[in-house]
Write a protein that binds this DNA or RNA. Structure first.
Lengths: 368, 368
DNA sequence: TTGTAGGCGTTATCAA
DNA sequence: TTGATAACGCCTACAA
């Protein structure tokens, strides 16, 4: 066995090559071809094959052609394990996402996976429901062999890698979304203040004059940011707010329905615009307004946060504010590759303003 | 015992090893430890380390202890690439999921990821929107290095590996959900007939007498299966159906709303039970019934397919029928490992009956 | 039971 | 440029 194996790469007599080729042909044209087979068939060294196929040789001459043809004919593709072992680059991007995968995470993954593949990275997915799991999965991914880590934290969690654990290979890591991140972790998030500003501005633009806010419950820092901006907004736009018009509660249809009913059943002053902290709240609100025979958007304008699939399934469809998922992912990958090469060990915290997805629940805005 | 922390290696043993170790020590105590370092510290051979750590040596003696302690102290973890290269088992499970990830896929992934990890497999996730992408991603995953493939096809697609492409390493592959799969591909799906039967039976159990069906649109085979069972159901239960009570259309809130309104606005015969093809349709139906002041479940019972998060957010909450995700995933993984070792090259098509998740839209059933 | 040593398939290093 | 050859870190016969 030894003799046969050893004779493999060493000999380069033409006869020997033909022999090898023939035997290969007989044994298994099918699977399990390695770089050696390609080299033999293309009559070059394995080094050359490696260079051609990994793009370290950009010449379209005969050699190039022979190698590619051979690789093609043999259905050869590099062994990722061997490549990773030798080159110290695994080709993997570790991702932690919330379990179950929510709409935001789904959107991010939808952008992330193709973009990563375009960089030659495959995505290893792990799921976490709470802070502990998030920490565990992150650590375990890093122990793994990944080239970078992206964490989309579950609600209320954040990616907090042990600050300077000397044991862990330091791998570029980024938190995507969530509210704030430790200062030693890179973060790409949504600019909540800008988002709220955008919402208020949008309503002001369509001549809303009084405004209610059905907020999420006040347990997250993100919400308080939003609230602060909401409170400040009247100074800019002159919109009327009433204390009773800002409510807090769960992100459910019922809650939106009930709050809205209460808000509009009294015959006193009513808002003519509603900002909902969540599409489900908005759904309930639309329901209630329909029940009260209040027209949207003619009598009341509704805008919400999330742009979930629900937004296009209501009557009227729901104008909604959404994070710029594509941009955020692009930026994350850019950061990752930057830190991969240079030891550019800063940890920027970047937030992006949201996009407004206009639908029927706000009047068409005529832009000059 | 060993109080010298920095100069960890004792100076006994093979010279060569000590040399390597010394240089290592100077360069970096921190990261990048290999099996050799552990071996040195534990004063055993690398083979022994390998055996202890990979579970091929189950003795809790001194050696075992030394090895584990050393590994622990050095924060050693095996290099997956090297392990994969040598052992021909990558430790990866390839998954193709629909893009964007829908609720079903999310549920499946939530079950799949932990279960896979428990088997020592990490999940490589890819996304596909259509048949072509599904094929591409599947092929590319197989080219990769995975130990098994699980495809959750996008709507209307199926996993169709090239029947006997000689070029591809044959890797156990399974389609999860979707409607039907090619006979040369293993499939684990939902028993639609049983699901519909379950729905009808459920309604009959709570004394429904007449029944409407707001079906999905009739473009998928799954729907026609459901329809056939629905048509047949009256012979079993004696439930009244009317031709006009079965409608087809998109899975939207509006559609459910409109159809229900139409169904109940005429003063003639009305059904007292509705089966909805989808939770969103059901949501619309509940809406319409509320608008008509028809009580659910007292006057009309509603049941739907999907058990999405929406189901718990409505008033009343929605009784819904869901695939047994856990079971399906377990079975998939079982199949995968079976085919991994033995060349048990059969391709079973297995379907499971659904679970009924009872909520408020159906009356409580008193079981004796 | 333990240690020795030979690959696994690539890429990186050097000579030619 | 190309080719021969040495790692990469681990597993696993095989020998002791």
């Amino acid at each position: 066995m030894d003799t046969e194996e050893n004779a493999y790469p060493a000999d380069h007599g033409t006869l020997e090559i033909d022999h090898m080729n023939a035997s290969k042909d007989l044994q298994q044209t099918t699977t399990n071809n390695s770089i050696v087979d390609v080299a033999v068939m293309a009559k070059v060294s394995i080094a050359t094959v490696s260079r051609v196929l990994s793009g370290n040789r950009n010449k379209h001459d005969d050699i190039d052609k022979r190698v590619r043809q051979a690789a093609d004919k043999l259905h050869y593709s590099v062994n990722p394990a061997a490549k990773a072992l030798r080159s110290k680059v695994s080709g993997f991007l570790g991702v932690v996402a919330p379990k179950p995968i929510d709409f935001s995470a789904s959107q991010l993954l939808s952008e992330l996976e193709p973009a990563a593949k375009k960089m030659g990275k495959d995505v290893i997915l792990t799921l976490a429901t709470d802070q502990k799991e998030l920490d565990d999965k992150a650590k375990s991914l890093i122990q793994r062999d990944i080239d970078g880590l992206i964490a989309i934290p579950p609600a209320g969690c954040q990616l907090s890698l042990p600050a300077d654990e000397p044991a862990m290979p330091d791998i570029p890591a980024i938190q995507l979304l969530g509210h704030n991140a430790p200062s030693h972790v890179s973060w790409i998030g949504l600019d909540i203040t800008a988002a709220m500003h955008e919402a208020v501005q949008q309503l002001a633009d369509v001549n809303a004059t009084s405004i209610a806010f059905l907020s999420r419950s006040l347990d997250s820092g993100a919400v308080s940011d939003a609230l602060v901006e909401f409170q400040a907004s009247d100074q800019i736009t002159g919109l009327i707010r009433e204390p009773g018009w800002t409510t807090f509660g769960p992100c459910t249809i019922n809650r939106g329905h009930d709050d809205t009913l209460r808000l509009f059943s009294g015959k006193e002053k009513r808002p003519n615009a509603i900002i909902c902290g969540d599409d489900q709240i908005a759904l309930g609100a639309l329901d209630a307004l329909k029940q009260l025979h209040i027209n949207v958007p003619d009598e009341v304008t509704v805008i919400s946060f999330g742009d979930s699939p629900l937004a296009t399934m209501t009557t009227p469809t729901l104008t909604s504010i959404r994070p710029p998922y594509r941009t955020m992912v692009d930026e994350a990958l850019r950061l990752l590759t930057m830190n991969e090469k240079g030891t550019h060990h800063l940890h920027p915290h970047t937030t992006f303003p949201p996009e407004v997805i206009s639908h029927e629940s706000t009047p068409k805005l005529m832009r000059p």
